[in-house]
Simulated assay, not measured.
Amino acid sequence: MQISVVIPTYNRKPILAQCLAALEGQIIVPQEPIAGYEVIVVDDGSTDGTVDWLHHNPDFPHVRLLQQQHQGPAAARNLGVAAAQGDTIIFIDSDLVVLPDFLQCHGSALVQAQRDQGDDRCFTYGAVINTCNFENPTAEPYKITDFSAAFFATGNVAIGRSWLEKAGLFDTQFQLYGWEDLELGVRLKQLGLRLVKCPQAVGYHWHPPFSLAQIPRLIDQEQQRGRMGVLFYQKHPTWAVRMMIQMTPLHQMLWGLLSLGGWLNERRMAPLLQWLIDRGKSQLALEIARIFLNWYNVKGVYQAYGELRQGMVK
């Protein structure tokens, strides 16, 4: 097994340095089952000096750098897969820091799963633990909020390259935030691929501690996610997708009630959120902020869907 780790990145140089250092520190047992690995970093038009830094950094011998204009992670991952030399692709994000046995765990679990089921129609999905600890991200314990029910998410997944190609890779229409990986997951499931959990392959997803200054960007992300959710539904008009993208009366009612129809918004909740942040409870503040963030998402979904239907009528 030859592994190609594909990492899209955009203006994340400080945490990317930790991500790549962790990948250089991988402990590989020769031929069991990994013959070798490469790390493909696809820069998506960064403006923070990432490209120049990588060009002049000798600390990452496994890294190959590719570049594209700012086209989003779907196009970046496709470019990485096209250039990959490995038969197995591992996708992680550029703000993920992994443990030294990360690649070995994915490789061993993938081979064992293939033996157990008698074919290679499977992929492994590792654990993702969210952390705000930049200095020592791998010290963060697992939390209930780290649980994910996603079938295929590119934060930490290993899959045979041939299956990605058979599924048609990522749809580059997904240029805004969200859903490009789960949409590919639907196509992989249609091909009969099975998800194999690999909790030993742990990745620590770093993000800065929540602050009120982040709220405009988070709202924008939720609105983008709403629009991309409708694109997802256009491609796969099923009830399961409607549930995923929160385009149901249930979600309208739930987040409408919790946000009091949008009355509990970022302005009215700011004093409480800042009070929690000042007491070192930024993660709790973020979870509470999801009340109005999800309301923005649901509104974004229905607005985009309404625009789509109007366009179809015309």
Rank of each mutant, 00 (worst) to 15 (best):
Q2H: 15
S4E: 04
R12W: 00
K13L: 15
K13C: 00
I15R: 04
I15L: 03
E24K: 10
I28G: 01
E32P: 02
P33T: 05
Y37S: 01
E38P: 08
E38R: 09
V39E: 06
D43F: 09
G45R: 06
G49P: 09
T50Q: 04
T50H: 08
D52F: 02
H56M: 04
P61W: 06
P61Q: 01
P61K: 06
R64H: 03
L66V: 00
Q67E: 15
Q71A: 13
R77L: 07
N78M: 07
A84E: 10
G86T: 11
I89T: 11
F91P: 00
F91N: 12
L96G: 05
V97Y: 13
V98L: 06
P100Y: 02
Q104I: 06
H106W: 08
H106F: 13
G107Y: 07
S108L: 14
S108W: 07
A109V: 13
A109N: 10
L110K: 02
V111A: 07
Q112G: 09
A113T: 07
R115F: 11
Q117F: 05
Q117W: 09
G118F: 04
D119H: 14
R121T: 01
R121M: 08
G126L: 02
A127G: 08
N130H: 14
C132Y: 09
N136G: 00
P141V: 13
P141K: 15
P141I: 11
P141Q: 13
K143S: 08
A149G: 08
A149M: 01
F151S: 08
T154D: 10
G155R: 11
G155I: 13
I159S: 07
L164G: 08
A167K: 11
A167F: 00
A167D: 01
G168A: 03
L169H: 10
F170V: 11
Q173M: 03
Q175F: 10
Q175Y: 09
Y177F: 15
G178N: 09
W179F: 08
E180H: 14
E180K: 08
E180L: 03
R187V: 00
R187T: 05
K189Y: 13
L191W: 00
L191N: 05
G192D: 11
G192M: 05
R194W: 05
L195Y: 05
L195K: 14
L195C: 05
V196L: 03
K197W: 07
P199L: 06
Y204Q: 00
W206Q: 01
Q214E: 13
P216L: 10
L218D: 13
D220S: 11
Q223R: 15
M228Q: 15
Y233P: 07
K235Y: 05
K235E: 02
M244Y: 02
I245P: 10
G256V: 09
G256L: 06
G261F: 13
W263Y: 09
L264C: 13
P271G: 05
P271A: 05
L272A: 12
W275F: 15
W275A: 13
I277Y: 04
D278R: 11
R279L: 07
K281I: 00
K281W: 03
K281L: 03
S282R: 06
A285Y: 06
L286F: 10
L286N: 00
I288F: 04
I288D: 01
N294V: 02
W295P: 08
V298A: 09
G300H: 02
V301E: 12
Y302W: 15
A304V: 04
L308T: 09
R309L: 14
M312T: 10
M312Q: 14
